[in-house]
Amino acid sequence: MKLRYLEERMFKILIGISVSLVTVPLLIIIGTVLLKGGKVLVDNPGVLITPPGSRYLITGEGGFLHAVLGSLYLVIPATLIASLMGFGIALFLQSDYTSQRISGSIRTCLDVLWGTPSIVYGVFVLTILIFINQRGCLLAGISALTLLELPIITRYADEAIRAVPKELKDACYSIGTTRYEASKVVGRYALPGIIAGVLIGMGRGIGDAASVIFTSGVSSVMPGGLFDSVTAMPILIFQQASSCYPTVRGHAYAAAFTLILIVGILNFLSRFLVRKLSKYVPGGK
């Protein structure tokens, strides 16, 4: 009889240990990045907005504006394209457009693509680049990121649209709207979920290095046109984190700080927008 309670107490202790083991890494990560990256940024805040010098990888002369801009040039178009495509596909997966069987298999396909390691996308786009004999460039990087973000954004949009009450759609159709017109109403209702998905996809895209390291051509000069090579902050972190030159390493820490900050802002923005946009949903403000 006593054993039951002993077991319960023991597992409660184990559960407590587990929860603290989950929270400790986050604190360590944020602490390390804040300390190391914050120090570099406080000492020399100019690195964020200075273009790299000519011998950047050795002396760390200048700053890493090329990577900051490169990340934005890569992620913003990729997220825009993926959101537009994702919204279309998500609408098509609903019962107004396709049968359950087809949408089910496409959802499976999307889930599998979601779980596919980003390096596979990188190698895939690289293989295409080899076929057409082209070097890595901004456009290829954008395509790889679009592929990476598309399944995430689509599945979030799909779930959000699926949760729209059937009555809302029925009301639209009963006053004689087409499916296209009804989707405007449905889209508004699902907007909080869709936006959350877009921002999660964007966060994944901006932090991903494996898909762009092969495709964007990695350079240490400022980004140019669509067919010039660019670099992104995650690539910079990967390449410079174990550099033997302290300044160059310092830039990696500062870039990590910037990345964490961006991801944090995206997270906050998502919460804020979801609350704001729920005005189209009953019960929302």
């Binding site: 994944r204 932090g207 984190a241 964490i260 991801v263």
Partner: peptide, 14 residues
């Protein structure tokens, strides 16, 4: 959610 959103290179760096 925040832990899930941290980029993998930052995990590597830390």
């Amino acid at each position: 959610d925040i832990l899930a959103g941290i980029p993998s290179v930052v995990f590597g760096l830390c």
